[in-house]
Amino acid sequence: MSTAAVNEMEFESAEAAVLPLHRRIVEFVRRNPNLSLGLLMVAIIIFVAIFAPWIAAKDPAELNVVTGRLKPPSEEYWFGSDRFGRDVFARAIFGGRISLTVGITVAALAVFIGLMVGLLSGYVRQIDAWLMRIMDGLMAIPGLLLAIGFIALLPAGIETVIIALTIPEIPRVARLVRGVVVVTREITYVEAAVAAGAGTARVIFKHIMPNTFAPLIVQATFVCASAMLSEAALSFLGAGTPPEIPSWGTMMADGRSYLSSATWIILFPGLFLAATVLSVNLIGDGLRDLLDPRFAKEV
């Protein structure tokens, strides 16, 4: 983390230390309303996803074809039932597990791999050109089409969707990291560290990497949000999560034909997805304001 950002946080906590906990929280919320709202919503969604089996009264895979098809929301089916007579509420809650897993895993993988590639490329000039050409090549292929290609190549499953959505994101992260590195390494203190005889690894991890954190955290939330949306888009195109797995994307894809006759099938997973993506984006925006990149620039 950049020194300035750390300073600011220290300053905040120093100020906050004199206040009682609830006042500190109120203060934080007042200062970062979007971030707080995002964090709260994501916390609720993750809680619901983790405790899905205890929250949902019904089994999401249980069929009731003969008597339970397309029932509107009621006491029995809180969010109505789909064309197989499955409980939309149970599926929406279990679906969150899949969609969140996709979003978070893709973000984590893309950021980690992209960070490594970007650091190497930005600092080790000998391989920069090579790595960047490969990254450029990957990035040049439209992401969704690349993902469709991978999904066709690999055995259908949620792992495949994760891989397919991660690969197109890596070059974007790598480029971002490399950009920060290229600028940072020209900065006096890094040059000083090199002059002082610090090893490459030390320079990279100690002096350069921290500068990438602020933009990376923001980028990670963006990747996470877009991965969840892409998962839905791929399902819609019939080339994503296999339809037998209940993710918000597959539920919406399956329910789109019932848009006007049984709206609840597409409405609830759609709302869940939009709410989740919205809160993740809010967190991203909030973090960006909190870790104001201006400080990084001024270092």
């Binding site: 895979a61 249980e62 069929l63 074809v65 197989f84 066709a152 259908a156 019939g238 080339a239 296999p242 339809p243 037998e244």
Partner: peptide
């Protein structure tokens, strides 16, 4: 296939159902 898989599960058979292009 979904109905078939659900019925197989009902009689205690493990099923992996895959939809593909």
């Amino acid at each position: 296939a979904t109905v078939l898989a659900a019925n197989l599960r009902k009689i205690g058979v493990k099923v992996q159902h895959q939809a593909m292009n």
